[in-house]
Simulated scan of single mutants.
Amino acid sequence: MTEPLWTGPAVALVNLFDADAAVDAEGTAEHAARVVEAGIRAVVVNGSTGEAAALSDAERVALIAAVRAACPGVPVIAGASGDWWQQAAARVAGAIDAGADAVLVAPPRLGGALTGYYARVVDAAAGVPVLAYHYPGVAGGPVPVEALPGLGVGGIKDSSGDPARFGHELGLGGDLAVYTGASALLGYASWLGAAGAIVAAANLVPGECLAAWDRDAAAQHVVSRTERESKALPGGLKEAMARQYGTSPVRRLG
């Protein structure tokens, strides 16, 4: 059986922008290094938490390269979704050239044949792991569980927060690495034998995310509360980070 690229919690990284809403690749990389130093096992850059939909392809590459240089000891996974296969394939190739160890790719927002789309993406990755991304309405379209075995991907990030669906994915077996994107399911995912998690809460409470993965109920409550409270702030997660770390709260989206 193939070992997953990493196990345990990864951070769904926030991308930082300066006062003029320009990409702050150095600041983003410094923040990535901070959570890695706290024990987080991998970094996912240019995902939905990183406002990837508002980034140019050149900005995506700059962020990947900066994070890769700042976090030499852990896997760096890059979001590389696209609204059609050629766009996604080009982003996959660019991410790998910039140093990504794997790519995270959601289906096209407007649907289409998933097998053909992912076949092109996997081909462009040239042996680098591809993770499908299920977060319909936020990051592309849905990834039906029954379609997963035929997509040729190495794993999936499921941010739906649906425990029944998550259990179904784990029941597929084989070499599919299953990661939850729902911070409320950290302990549950660990208990069921998932490969790991990719969560935005790790930007704020990395230590508690690690403890929750180890099935510490008190830590799981802290993680869930932290995410809930940050979402209630006018500026969301970035405002919570600004209060905690002094980072920029500027957003391009939302």
Results as ranks from 00 to 15, higher is better:
L253Q: 12
A125K: 01
A124Q: 06
A21N: 09
A70D: 02
W213N: 03
V35Y: 03
G39K: 12
C71Y: 05
D101C: 07
G155I: 01
V223Q: 04
G8P: 04
A200H: 10
L110T: 05
D18K: 03
L186H: 07
Y245L: 10
V205M: 11
T28C: 02
L13A: 15
G8C: 11
G27C: 03
P144M: 00
S230A: 14
G137D: 11
V103F: 04
L110F: 12
G187Q: 04
D162A: 12
V14L: 15
D175W: 09
A21R: 15
W191D: 13
L110M: 12
T226D: 02
T226S: 10
M241C: 05
V222N: 04
A22E: 12
V103Y: 04
Y245M: 08
S224K: 10
M1T: 07
M241A: 04
V14P: 10
A218F: 12
D175V: 04
S230V: 06
V67W: 03
P75D: 09
L170Y: 09
R165A: 11
E146H: 05
V205A: 13
R228Q: 11
V67K: 05
T180Q: 02
D101W: 14
A62E: 07
P72M: 11
G112T: 00
P136F: 06
V45T: 03
E3V: 14
Q87R: 15
S48W: 04
T180E: 06
P107H: 14
L192Q: 13
L5M: 12
V143M: 03
H134G: 07
V11H: 13
A58T: 06
D20I: 06
G161N: 10
R252S: 10
A42L: 11
I77H: 01
A66Y: 04
G167R: 12
V103D: 02
V121A: 09
R91E: 00
P234G: 07
G140S: 15
A113S: 11
G174E: 10
V128S: 01
A88M: 10
L131M: 14
T180A: 06
R225H: 12
G47D: 06
L176G: 13
I198V: 15
A70V: 00
V11R: 10
P108Q: 13
G27N: 03
Y188F: 15
Y188P: 00
A113D: 14
A58P: 00
I198N: 01
R165T: 12
V130W: 01
A69W: 02
L114K: 04
L185D: 01
A78H: 04
M1S: 13
D158Q: 08
L148I: 09
V76T: 05
K238L: 15
A102W: 07
A197P: 08
A38F: 08
V67F: 07
D123S: 15
G137F: 08
A54E: 13
D214F: 11
G207E: 14
E229M: 14
Q220P: 11
A195I: 11
A25I: 06
V143W: 00
I198H: 04
I64D: 01
D101K: 03
L233Y: 08
L110A: 08
A58C: 05
P249F: 08
A201R: 00
V250K: 02
C209S: 01
G161Q: 09
L170G: 09
A218C: 05
Q86I: 10
G137M: 13
R68L: 04
A184L: 03
G167E: 02
